[in-house]
């Protein structure tokens, strides 16, 4: 009887010892290999060649591997045109924008055909689109604004939908506007729109004056010297605008994602606190992420507004240059 009892005690002790050893082993392993949160966060904000469907782990299709194409070498540059995660989401965002706007247009047409005032979703979207058209595009470009309005409207809604897409729950939490190449491509589009519309509106002579400005009140050799001296500054001024556009949007979106991922990282850093206090980490993280998500929702609208507004302002400045 006694022996049996001893045996039980000994077993219990062994089990406890084993468990303790396992915990220590885990802790040591975690300490040795380290959970490099920074690296994880950067990987998650970066583009990728795969699409993760991690919330649905029971499904067989967990990771979609996108096709890889060979590199292309053009003009000393190596370009790989393989679609990436951001490309897929860019297409998704474009389809969504088109679907929403097409639906709005169709509803409006139907409502007007029935001699009804626009209502519901269509009325809201109409007001939103008209706000972008009137208060962003036309107000800042001037009388020519209606001509450029479709570009500004498309920019605004494409960027807005991209930004908001990043706030969706996984696996939809991918925002193409947090990719520097995407924002740079959009900014370059704006740059060419500004310059080419300037050439058309101002004529060759007027356009050259935006590079070689004639200083008011100067004539002759002095004016020529000043014009040549100002040229590099003017050219830098032209290039800085799209650069700022691209970096501002990319920075805001990427920063938001990094903050949210960092807050989620708190769970993995402190989630295995002893004595059942880990629930506190869950609550804290949830509260913080909710607050930051609200801020990010605001930032998503704000940055779309800023990009569209500045594009309109740049086009308008060029139109009224003389």
């Amino acid at each position: 009887m006694m022996q049996e009892h001893d045996q039980v005690v000994q077993d219990t002790v062994h089990t406890a010892q084993d468990a303790a050893a396992a915990v220590v082993h885990d802790a040591v392993e975690q300490a040795e290999h380290g959970l490099d949160l920074g690296e994880v966060i950067l990987h998650h904000t970066a583009d990728s060649w795969t699409i993760e469907l991690h919330p649905f782990e029971s499904l067989p299709l967990q990771t979609i591997h996108l096709p890889r194409f060979a590199d292309i070498h053009v003009f000393g540059m190596t370009i790989n045109l393989s679609p990436t995660k951001h490309v897929v989401f860019m297409v998704l965002v474009a389809v969504l924008v088109f679907f929403v706007m097409w639906l709005t247009g169709r509803m409006l047409k139907k409502q007007r055909a029935g001699e009804q005032a626009p209502k519901g979703f269509a009325a809201a979207m109409e007001a939103f689109v008209l706000w972008v058209r009137d208060d962003i595009a036309i107000a800042n470009i001037g009388p020519n604004g209606a001509k450029f309005a479709p570009l500004i409207m498309t920019l605004f809604f494409f960027i807005l939908f991209s930004n908001v897409m990043g706030l969706m729950p996984p696996p939809l939490n991918v925002s193409p506007s947090s990719n520097l190449a995407v924002t740079a491509a959009l900014a370059i589009l704006v740059f060419f729109t500004v310059e080419i519309s300037g050439m058309i509106t101002l004529g060759p002579k007027g356009y050259l004056r935006t590079i070689f400005p004639v200083v008011p009140g100067m004539t002759g050799v002095g004016a020529v010297v000043m014009a040549i001296a100002m040229a590099p500054i003017e050219i830098i001024g032209k290039l800085v605008k799209p650069f700022a556009l691209a970096v501002r949007l990319f920075g805001n979106m990427t920063a938001g994602h990094i903050v949210i991922l960092a807050l989620f990282g708190l769970i993995f850093l402190f989630g295995n606190l002893p004595y059942g206090t880990n629930w506190a980490i869950g609550i804290t993280t949830t509260a913080l992420v909710t607050a930051i998500m609200m801020l990010e929702l605001f930032v998503a609208f704000l940055q779309a507004y800023v990009f569209a507004l500045l594009s309109a302002v740049f086009i308008g400045l060029m139109q009224h240059e003389h």
């Binding site: 950067l42 990987h43 970066a46 583009d47 060649w49 947090s178 740079a184």
Partner: peptide
């Protein structure tokens, strides 16, 4: 894929 969001993939342009 790229290790960080700061790597620019020119194909995406």
């Amino acid at each position: 894929g790229p290790a960080s969001p700061f790597e620019v993939n020119f194909g995406l342009f």
